[in-house]
């Protein structure tokens, strides 16, 4: 049987997880299901906007099925939704109970500090992964059905990339919470980093001089490789996972070494 704390964490988070799952599922389904109807409008949109603007919005082209899918699901709103879900849920692992006082009774459980932090992270990490996997799972059904001509292997690469991106920021959010014990710090630090990373990736495409900054951006490793056209890029995905794992471990380490609930 799973540890009691893991089950308790899921039970406490289930409403929020369900809400995010429904939201992400609705978003994915609605945008992709109306692929044919959007086609005409998309062409107009693309003609109306200058190329620089399209680059900034992360829209390569909206004529091709892959371009359409990238523009709608993987460029801005999709990552934004799943990242917000990941950051707010991760803020609940340590920061929220520490602020509202529930931490005392949670931490009084017979677990070492590291086991406590590890179980909280494992429970939330699983929930976040489930939400982040929803676009991938739905696209497997929707893409063939609406007649988008994209290899499912490429769809899988992009969908897995989204999960890897979420792991990366979940690790960062966990570290922020484990160190500070404050929800506002988790939201501010991780939110600011996510926005900066998105901007860095967007700006690097617009100007040659800024090309190098994309190497700093997790968004580059997620979507800059153009997985919907080019398929799998395991090294880039592993970099995202490695950043997430390293920050998560650093968070467990930091939580084991500080005063809690002062």
């Amino acid at each position: 049987m799973l540890p009691a704390l893991v089950r308790k964490t899921w039970r406490d988070d289930r409403r929020a997880v369900l809400g995010w799952a429904v939201g992400v599922a609705a978003f994915t389904t609605i945008y992709t299901s109306f692929y044919r109807q959007f086609q005409g409008a998309a062409e107009l949109k693309q003609e109306a906007l200058p190329q620089g603007m399209l680059d900034f919005l992360g829209i390569a082209d909206m004529f091709s099925p892959a371009g359409y899918l990238q523009a709608t699901i993987f460029s801005l709103v999709g990552p934004l939704l799943v990242l917000m879900c990941a950051i707010t849920l991760t803020a609940r692992t340590i920061a929220r109970p520490e602020e509202d006082g529930g931490m005392e009774l949670l931490l009084a459980n017979p677990l070492s500090r590291t086991a406590f932090a590890g179980q909280r992270l494992a429970a939330t990490g699983t929930a976040v992964t489930v939400v982040a996997a929803i676009p991938l799972l739905l696209l497997f059904v929707v893409v063939p059905r609406v007649g988008m001509d994209i290899p499912l292997s490429n769809v899988a690469a992009a969908g897995v990339g989204l999960i890897a991106l979420v792991w990366c920021f979940t690790g960062i959010a966990f570290l922020a919470g484990a160190v500070s014990g404050r929800r506002s710090s988790v939201l501010a630090v991780t939110g600011a980093l996510a926005v900066a990373a998105y901007m860095a990736n967007a700006i690097s495409g617009m100007s040659e001089g800024w090309h190098w900054v994309r190497w700093l951006s997790p968004f580059h490793y997620f979507i800059g490789t153009d997985p919907l056209h080019t398929g799998w890029h395991p090294v880039e995905l592993l970099i995202l996972v490695a950043v997430g794992a390293a920050t998560a471990l650093a968070g467990v380490w930091a939580f084991d070494r500080r005063d809690v609930g002062v």
């Binding site: 308790k8 109970p97 529930g102 005392e104 949670l106």
Partner: peptide, 9 residues
């Protein structure tokens, strides 16, 4: 605890 706060609903 002196300041009781229970996690969850």
């Amino acid at each position: 605890p002196g300041e009781l706060s229970f996690p969850g609903r």
